[in-house]
Amino acid sequence: MYVRTFGNTNVMCYPDNTTMLSKSYIANRDKHPVDLIILILDNLNSILVKQVDILHTENITIKGWQHPFEALSFKLCSHVNFF
């Protein structure tokens, strides 16, 4: 493992080319690394955005439900982006 800096926080990372946020989170959770959890939120948010986007861009009709789903998903992503 090696130390990598996220914002102002040093976290332990695994020695591969990709930084494993999940493993760093588990290893450092007791230190409450805010910068790390923000990166995790950003990662998760990007997955949710892709999910909503694929429904929208491929014109999948959700009978009678498209509006609240997309509106609520957009609101959720926007709120999470605050962090």
Binding site: P33, V34, I37, I38, L41, L44, L76, H79, F83
Partner: peptide, 14 residues
Amino acid sequence: FSMAELSAMIIGRT
């Protein structure tokens, strides 16, 4: 940190 963790759980469930 706790607030951000709860938000991560919500996104994960979603």
